[in-house]
Design a protein around this nucleic acid. Structure first.
Lengths: 204, 204
DNA sequence: TCAGGATTTAAACTTTGTTTAAAACATCTA
DNA sequence: TAGATGTTTTAAACAAAGTTTAAATCCTGA
């Protein structure tokens, strides 16, 4: 167990860098081995397969980047502030890690079956506290009767999907990177406004 | 050019069936050749590559399924009715063709660069009439000042993304297929309500 | 009819991810 | 210390994938 930890880490690091840089599919195992300066077979020795290595890296990335989001969801903030903070933090996160989006898309498209078993993703979408909060506020009559699931799916959709079709948006609107960034910045206000409006009482 | 059209069609049909059934990545060229009853090399003779064949099939599928959607967007319906009709038709379309979702995700994730060049997709998201309509109604003061792009992205996100994370939703809520269908059925009301509320004037 | 282009075929090629079996290394015990 | 044992590393081969090649066959028009 002397150099072992080291080799495993070398593979992990090289693969992470390559996956983020060129995408999983366009990165070959031989390339990873090369970059890590190790023998080809060691990838399969330490991780059972390339797919497995991908899972490990993806889990690490999600964990590293979503702690803040989960903390917000589980906090004691009021619903409005919670939603505003969550949307902002989520958009910031995806802006800083654009490749997480394509990673998620990769998962969605390649491993539909496995997606529910990936604890990292699963925990990201686990929202008992948030759901309870929506339920309670509904009950107390502070907001309209609202399905927590619908509300949460609305929120996720409005945040995430625009990143997935980023290039399409940029193409259709002739935006450059800066414009798109401004577009998403605008959504930090827009999305909470939209969601809060929909659950607020007393309007017509 | 005797049997040629026939062979090309046989490949196209066999591939379509297999792609839809098992996904693109899990379908090998040899399998397609087998099912079509043709020689392996003919796939590359008629379509230049498997990727190309996929593009052709995808374009066909999108065209076939989105005519109705485009027609609605380009119609003379009022904004409210247009949005309601569009959302309903779109959700119906994705419900009936669940594989179109993963196809879109595949494109988004594998071909970010090419996505804007795919006319089928591009035209689906081309909304000059809708944008004009939103712009005019804003100007006339019938609705709040609204960015057509933001509104359209909102709508697309709310419709499409839930299908992308379908398994995740089903897992988290212990839904079965029927439940999920009902969940999306509910969204046919919910999404237009949400969007219309956000552009309506005079509230609060 | 037969020349020439289009189509089809069998075979090989390249690049994937993965496995194997032996070699090298490290560790622990008699 | 020497040897046995388990771990790590290596070179080589494997299977399956998409693609290409070059020859064979078919078809059509002059």
């Amino acid at each position: 167990m002397a150099k072992s930890k080291n080799t495993e880490q070398k593979i992990f690091d090289a693969a992470t860098e390559l996956f983020l840089e060129k995408g999983v599919d366009r990165t070959s195992v031989r390339e990873i081995a090369n970059k890590a300066g190790i023998n080809l077979a060691l990838m399969n020795y330490y991780f059972r397969s390339k797919e497995n290595l991908f899972d490990a890296i993806f889990t690490m990335l999600v964990k590293k980047n979503t702690r803040k989001l989960i903390k917000i969801l589980d906090s004691d903030l009021g619903l409005e502030e919670k939603i505003r903070k969550y949307v902002e933090a989520y958009i910031d996160m995806l802006t800083e890690n654009p490749l997480l989006v394509s990673f998620v898309m990769a998962i969605v498209h390649r491993s539909q079956e496995r997606i529910t078993q990936m604890k990292a993703i699963s925990s990201l979408y686990s929202t008992p506290k948030f759901a309870q909060q929506v339920f309670d506020e509904s009950k107390k009559g502070h907001i309209k009767p609202t399905s927590p699931t619908q509300l949460f799916v609305d929120m996720l959709s409005l945040i995430t999907f625009p990143f997935a079709i980023k290039l399409l948006i940029m193409d259709k609107t002739s935006y450059d990177e800066a414009h798109f960034q401004a577009f998403m910045e605008e959504r930090k206000q827009r999305i909470p406004d939209l969601l809060l409006l929909s659950i607020k009482k007393h309007e017509e």
